[in-house]
Design a protein around this nucleic acid. Structure first.
Lengths: 357, 357
DNA sequence: GGCAGGATGGAAACCGGTGTCAATCATCTC
DNA sequence: GAGATGATTGACACCGGTTTCCATCCTGCC
């Protein structure tokens, strides 16, 4: 059940290194060397104001000389809290996951925190139990929730109960500002709509992401609103539901392109599905963008790896991650502010063009 | 520098939960409830044989009833080692990174260990210092090194010095068996070659990954060896160097397809570059596989998201990750064995076909 | 029945930090 | 110059486990 054995592979003994012999310094060592009590060293480490400058400098010198860094486990034990940030997610897109991780790491660089990843399955019967065990056992300092876990009120409630700080990254405001970062998918949808309208398209279709993702609704909502501003509207049959996957994009594309008359522009809930539509169009003998305009969402790697490269909505995922962690660990050094909003923006590539003659 | 503030956002106080009041049980609670000393409870947790069955059962019952789990920090402090596994990597491919993470998590599910991710940059001046600080501060239980960090002897040496267990995942045997998992890229290269030869191709080209990746050399080596068995050889100009990226695939494709006579088959060091070649072929007005056969390597998501879907070499990344962690934490319950080898295998899709008439 | 020796259980120290609270020190006030 | 006041500092317990060392309890054996 729990870790119980000593590690199997012990390192070479034959290769004694110069450094190897020097034991890691402890707070007691530093205290002795600086001629103070360990409590005072602790004060310096924790930036307590109640230390005379002269004393502080002396201790800091010793710390620097010995390259001392406090043991996070011991510190955590005393603090009743670890210095680990959890990322709990179920987003299936590798590009999103990696970008988010990089963003989180950006935000905690040099802070002494570490990132522990925890993929999960929202439909598992042990979903909440697993999260609870994870957070409580590791005494996580805080948790970042990207979509769609972020949209699960059970998770937010659980974390509130446990008393674990968290940040939800979502399309809309779901919680108190200090717990949220809003990605503003709605605005992205609107940007896509305006681009397509400007190109002169009238017969426009939309491939939605799964119902279970809030972003699906927001992207669609923003798209429809902006269309309405231009005096256009999506008929119900112009909206088909995909699953944010490549395959679903192909299927939805097949469906839409078999219609008569067929749409001249398709806005897809994400790039994966847009790539699927490109493939569907190819099968149908259509050229993009001459016969069909395709617009994606996310601007992940795949957007540039397909042909033609996708016009899409860029979402600053990594940046969002960075800011999320900063909110989590930065604490009171930032003044309270509104919900943090990160705006997407349109990237025009080659998959969109004027309406065919 | 180091975490020093209390968390900024405190959870709601107004929503008192039923569960919230019940303090987490400690080893002392369990000992008291079971009527034994905490040392005996500790023995049960650590599976010591020196506990009478009756006593053990009683203690286990109390543990189960209270859902007790020992505090990893306290335990780690006493063990002088944490229960964290580090993944130190510099592989730029999100699909690889995510698959590897999932594999590692598969292998540690239910073990009480957690995964801490640590991307790095091999050419950074603080590369080794960073790793050392990470491993030593967190007192990592073990580290998994995927390519190309796995191929860096400085890292292996450092970890040996520190005395941290590690597993290297690489194309070839670089270390003692217990420290290695070999991906056998050479075999994959050979499989690609045999497939291409069977289709009747003679004018064959190869796009290599970057020099700095061992897998580049192995994939190429296996490919050339199997070609040689069929009496074929790659001329130096048929080998061009890419960078494992989509863009480099486009560039290398442009170069190769502008030749006269041009190759009828191109084997690419990975799927990304193969996708790039597909795009290059499209620009050149060539149909795949009618005019050109393209074979990739890895079988990541992109292989199925492009058109036509790529014939490629599937590498069991997730499985490799699982086994790596099991070696790391499974320890002495596994008998010493040879270097673990994970074999790739050919997946035939639609990007390969018989040589054009 | 007495004794050697293995099986069990417990007290106390320790891992490396932090919280509490009292003691010490330097000024300041009158 | 004495007491007051607030800034500094340190002694000691504690976080939740493990290890060391020793006491006790059974056994089997003679």
């Amino acid at each position: 059940m729990s870790p119980s054995k000593t590690p199997s592979s012990t390192p070479d003994e034959n290769e004694t290194s110069v450094e190897g012999g020097r034991r890691r310094a402890t707070i007691n060592d530093i205290a002795r060397l600086a001629g103070v009590s360990k409590k005072t060293v602790s004060r310096v480490i924790n930036q307590s104001p109640f230390v005379r400058d002269e004393t502080r400098e002396r201790i800091e010198a010793v710390i620097a000389e010995w390259g001392y860094a406090p043991d996070p486990q011991a510190r955590g034990l005393a603090f009743r809290r670890s210095f680990l940030i959890g990322m709990i997610y179920d987003n299936p897109n590798p590009q999103y996951v990696v970008n988010m991780q990089l963003g989180l790491l950006d935000g905690m660089r040099g802070s002494g925190f570490e990132l522990v990843v925890h993929p999960c399955n929202r439909s598992s019967p042990t979903f909440l139990t697993d999260i609870r065990a994870f957070v409580e056992r590791q005494k996580l300092y805080g948790v970042v929730l990207p979509p769609s876990v972020s949209e699960d009120e059970r998770v937010a409630k659980l974390l509130n109960e446990i008393g674990c700080a968290y940040i939800r990254i979502a399309s809309v405001e779901l919680d108190k500002p200090e717990h949220m970062i809003v990605g503003h998918d709605r605005m992205g949808g609107a940007q896509a709509a305006r681009h397509i309208v400007e190109l002169g398209h009238k017969r426009i279709a939309f491939i939605s992401g799964p119902e279970s993702f809030r972003s699906s609704h927001e992207r669609r909502g923003g798209f429809e609103d902006a269309l309405a501003e231009a005096g256009l509207a999506l008929a119900p049959e112009d909206i088909v539901q995909g699953a944010y996957t490549f395959e679903s994009g192909v299927a939805c594309g097949d469906l839409l392109l078999s219609r008569t008359p067929r749409p001249t522009a398709i806005f897809c809930g994400n790039d994966e599905m847009a790539a699927g539509v490109l493939q569907s169009a190819r099968k149908a003998g259509l050229s993009v963008p001459q016969d069909l305009t395709v617009v994606g969402f996310d601007d992940f790697q795949i957007a540039q790896a397909v042909w033609p490269p996708l016009t899409t909505i860029h979402t600053p995922t990594r940046e969002i991650g960075r800011i999320a962690v900063e909110k989590l660990i930065g604490g009171e050094r930032r003044e309270p502010r509104d919900v943090t909003k990160m705006e997407p923006n349109l990237v025009i590539r080659e998959s969109s063009g004027p309406v065919p003659a």
